[in-house]
């Protein structure tokens, strides 16, 4: 089995894994980090979203062996010390989840989204200047499904962190 070395939430880790192992299964099964969730396992639901080298991806569709040397941030790495990140706090105060299963993916996705906005990266609803709005958030979060339907509060949580009226 190939040996894979990467950095997860700031810690260097090495593991042996079958070449067929997805990054998601490496995190959950091999490394025991079960914060990242498996929903559909086909890239359709976004529950497995993690941030790799600064951009968000579906970890279920990515082979672990391809991530040699990469830097991965999972939901376990979003908190600042013992305190929640502003986005995590906003998810609590805005009641942005019900069952919570999709929440790790929503949080990783939304964390990356705020960085994409800050970098000025466009979406299909962007006209000229990139600016956070409900429309932008809904378009950019379309890869994260919530079967409980907490979408309105998820949008409010993301807007509140960006300092926009929620």
């Amino acid at each position: 089995m190939p040996s894979i070395s990467l950095t997860v939430n700031g810690e260097p880790v090495s593991a042996e894994a079958d070449v067929r192992t997805s990054l998601l299964d490496l995190l959950r099964e091999t490394l025991g980090m079960t914060g990242t969730k498996k929903g559909c396992d086909h890239g359709q639901c976004g529950a497995c979203t993690v941030i790799v080298n600064g951009t968000r991806i579906n970890s279920c569709l990515s082979l672990a062996v391809g991530h040699e040397g990469d830097t991965v941030t999972t939901v376990e790495g979003l908190a600042e010390g013992n305190g929640l990140s502003p986005l995590q706090k906003a998810f609590v105060t805005q009641d942005a989840f019900q069952c919570g299963y999709c929440t790790p993916g929503q949080l990783c996705s939304a964390t990356a989204l705020l960085n994409e906005i800050a970098r000025g990266e466009p979406s299909v609803v962007t006209d000229e200047r990139v600016r956070l709005s409900e429309e932008e958030i809904r378009e950019r979060m379309s890869g994260n499904l919530c079967r409980c339907g907490a979408y309105n509060n998820i949008v409010d949580a993301i807007l509140s962190v960006a300092g926009e009226p929620a």
Binding site: G43, G46, T49, T55, R56, I57, N58, L61, S62, S109, A112, L113, E116, P122, S123, V124, R140, S142, G143
Partner: peptide
């Protein structure tokens, strides 16, 4: 081309 690319899939998929 930019519009077509951004019309496809999701940000997670487009990043990969």
């Amino acid at each position: 081309l930019s519009t077509a690319l951004l019309s496809g899939a999701t940000q997670q998929l487009r990043n990969k």
